[in-house]
Simulated assay, not measured.
Amino acid sequence: MKKNGVFNSQIAGVIADMGHFDTLSIGDAGMPVPPGTKKIDLAVTKGMPSFMAVLQNVLSELQIQRVFLAEEIKTNNPALLKQIQNLIDVEIVFIPHEQMKKDLGTTKAFIRTGEMTSYANIILESGVIF
């Protein structure tokens, strides 16, 4: 058994399979996932697990170089935006929410959380450790 990090075997497998520039998405319970995109459903009930808890866990193992957030998070969920900004130290690219929904079609997987707040979605772009 692993001692720490990502215990979910599906998420751990996706992280292990990531290459430079590959993307992985984490989002709220309401985000529509395109057909063909692997969905890892962690939602248990409203708010569990939270978006931030899952993001923190994934970042404990995944090297990122850039993230994508919906432009709408700035006005519709500024508290969550601040939490994300405090957690990461890479470039944040803001894109329209409609574009984010389309971009989910090219991610390795979408991790669905129990989050129930607006625009709690992120696309993580994998970096390299060397």
Rank of each mutant, 00 (worst) to 15 (best):
M1S: 14
N4K: 14
G5V: 07
G5D: 12
F7C: 09
F7S: 14
S9F: 10
I11E: 01
A12T: 09
A12H: 11
A12E: 14
G19T: 07
G19F: 05
H20W: 10
F21D: 15
T23M: 14
L24C: 12
S25W: 04
G27P: 08
G27K: 04
G27Y: 03
A29R: 13
A29Q: 07
M31T: 15
P32S: 05
P35Q: 11
T37L: 06
K38H: 08
D41N: 15
A43S: 15
V44K: 15
K46Y: 11
G47D: 06
G47H: 08
M48Q: 09
M48C: 09
S50D: 01
M52L: 14
M52N: 02
M52A: 05
M52P: 02
M52F: 14
L55T: 05
Q56E: 15
S60D: 12
E61S: 13
L62F: 06
I64A: 04
Q65S: 13
V67H: 05
L69C: 10
E71W: 03
E71A: 09
E72G: 03
E72K: 06
I73H: 07
N76S: 12
N76P: 00
P78W: 06
P78H: 05
A79G: 00
L80W: 02
L81R: 09
L81I: 03
L81D: 04
L81E: 13
Q83S: 14
I84H: 07
I84M: 11
Q85V: 06
L87C: 07
D89C: 00
V90E: 00
V90K: 01
E91F: 05
I92R: 12
V93C: 11
F94K: 10
F94I: 09
E98S: 14
E98N: 10
Q99P: 00
M100T: 11
K101T: 11
K102T: 15
K102P: 00
D103C: 00
G105K: 06
K108E: 06
F110H: 13
I111W: 01
T113E: 01
E115S: 14
T117R: 11
Y119M: 13
L124V: 02
S126F: 00
G127E: 02
G127P: 02
V128F: 04
V128S: 10
I129Y: 03
F130C: 05
F130N: 12
